[in-house]
């Protein structure tokens, strides 16, 4: 119980720090929206004024900002006039989440089994093949995969329509491919090396010595231990997918948060940029929290802490 409470408190604290950090970054970094060096068009200045109450003392602004934040009010967008950041995020979230979700499922369902097979057939041809593909997947950036895919399958072969269509299943292939390329390869490699390491362990030998069937040794004794580092990776994986979505949505013209974010960057829509950053950061922290809780179920050593001596 102690463990869980600690983790939740830690998460909240981190969120708080990030929100604060972001706020002060906006003010501290030269060239940011609030510095006097910047001359903004009148209406943006007015929106900023409304949102951040620029004339008030710093702390008061900070307090207002935090209060707004806690109420999930991220302010008005600069570039898309008339819309709030909340609305923009809410509009884009479903599709981004959907594609991200599909990506995660695929990564787990493909990456882990491949890693296991590769470990079991170490140094045989299939292992080499998998390792080569996995290395390529990890090193070739997602935007290259994305554009290559569109070029070959969209332009040259014309198998895939060039514009994303929510209802057309085929248009999901490219984005998902580009989004998962890195992570599925990473998971495969991680599972493989983890499995290999676990299989060297003494307790595997003990299980075999006690007559446990080879199948059980692998699927029960080895697997549970081997998956521990993989579960730990889920956090970074979510991060990779999040940031990957910026590029992928841009290249494939998918109307998700990522695309809006990149547009926001181009247009210097500060509230949008900050809002999405804080939103994504919060999302990430919650994901990591969930993973940590999940992790405690798999590895009992974590929550029980130090062992009690005889």
């Amino acid at each position: 119980m102690n463990y869980y409470i600690r983790r939740v408190v830690s998460a909240i604290f981190t969120l708080f720090v990030i929100a604060t950090l972001t706020f002060f970054m906006m003010r501290a970094i030269p060239g940011g929206p609030f510095t006097r060096e910047r001359s903004l068009p009148a209406e943006i200045e007015a929106a900023l004024q409304a949102q951040y109450n620029l004339d008030a003392p710093l702390l008061e602004q900070y307090a207002e900002y935090m209060i707004d934040l806690v109420q999930f009010d991220l302010g008005p967008s600069f570039s898309l006039k008339g819309f709030t950041v909340n609305q923009i995020i809410a509009a884009g979230f479903p599709i981004t989440a959907l594609i991200g979700f599909i990506a995660v499922i695929l990564i787990v369902l493909i990456g882990i089994p491949i890693g296991i097979i590769s470990a079991l057939k170490q140094n045989k041809p299939i292992d080499y093949a998998v390792m080569i593909f996995a290395t390529l997947g990890v090193t070739i950036p997602s935007f290259i995969i994305a554009t290559l895919f569109l070029y070959f399958f969209g332009v040259k072969l014309a198998w895939v329509p060039l514009l994303f269509n929510e209802d057309n299943f085929v248009t999901y292939i490219g984005p998902v491919l580009a989004l998962t390329g890195y992570s599925v390869s990473f998971v495969a490699r991680l599972t493989r090396s983890s499995m290999l390491e676990v299989l060297q362990q003494d307790y595997i030998r003990t299980a075999r010595a006690n007559g446990i069937s080879e199948f059980k040794v692998l699927s029960k004794h080895a697997l549970k231990n081997a998956l521990i580092p993989v579960v730990t990776y889920i956090g970074p994986m979510v991060a990779a997918i999040m940031t990957g979505s910026f590029v992928v949505e841009n290249v494939f013209a998918i109307p998700g948060i990522g695309k809006r974010f990149v547009e926001g960057v181009t247009n210097r829509d500060y509230t949008l940029i900050v809002g999405v950053t804080v939103f994504y950061a919060a999302f990430y922290i919650i994901m990591v929290l969930i993973v940590d809780i999940l992790y405690s179920f798999i590895d009992p050593r974590i929550k029980l802490g130090k062992r009690r001596a005889d």
Partner: peptide
């Protein structure tokens, strides 16, 4: 470490605007 650093890279680059 608890947030994806890329987000911050982007944020800083935008704010520095250079």
């Amino acid at each position: 470490d608890s947030i994806p650093l890329l987000l911050y890279v982007i944020l800083i680059m935008v704010l520095l605007d250079d």
